[in-house]
Write a protein that binds this DNA or RNA. Structure first.
Lengths: 120, 120
DNA sequence: CAGGATCCTATACGATACTG
DNA sequence: CAGTATCGTATAGGATCCTG
């Protein structure tokens, strides 16, 4: 005998799992900035991303890029230059994050206003 | 004279800072689930949230609620019952996260399909 | 240039017990 | 009920140096 409240809760549990799945992939200090950098310039090389993002180390960039690639958000292309360069770009799946990134950008600006009282 | 590319990059740096501001507040394992729980039920007591979220400890819940309150996303109300109960609800500012949470929910479902739902 | 290897610190998080 | 206190582990992240 299922009551309405049960399904209500069940449905919410699914939503929470979904939202946690997203955060598992996007959480942390660098993932979103990296995606944002690549997305903004369409294609971006390792050293360019390193310069785009203030404070990131090559170790972290390397590590994060690998995870993003495993999650099929970015695609890695080795260019046979001398020395070699590597280009990153978003996959179709990665591009679906644009809405979220735009929302997070707007919300971040708004949040700063609320907390600090004024934008910088 | 300023070239377009300069403003281009400058503008992007601002966007990245905004997006990082958001992630500073929302990153981690529990913040979004907590907000989601409170938002879903409108008002929610400490022990209810504890039950809503699978795996969270009272220590973490307490800590995270405090941070969310500092960031003015939730409002804490002590009810003079016996023993006392405490109700949490989203502030107006906290409510502005609904769009992001909805997007993250949809994206999480989509992402799971892409990652585990693909043929090997 | 693009990263890997190594070492280290800080913080996130978890388990359990206790209190007003 | 709604937390705190204490302790312990795991992981995130940083600094530096090395290599094809």
């Amino acid at each position: 005998m299922e009551c309405k409240k049960t399904n209500f809760g069940q449905e919410h549990k699914k939503e929470m799992r979904a939202v946690q799945d997203s955060m598992d992939v996007l959480s942390g200090k660098w993932k979103i900035p990296i995606i944002s950098s690549i997305c903004y310039y369409n294609k971006r090389r390792f050293s360019d991303i390193l310069n785009d993002i203030d404070g990131i180390s090559n170790r972290m960039l390397s590590k994060e890029l690998k995870e993003l690639e495993i999650n099929q958000l970015i695609k890695r292309t080795v260019l046979e230059t001398q020395p070699i360069t590597v280009e990153y770009q978003l996959t179709d799946h990665g591009l679906t994050l644009r809405t979220i990134i735009n929302n997070l950008t707007e919300w971040g600006i708004d949040h700063r206003k609320v907390i600090v009282g004024k934008p910088l």
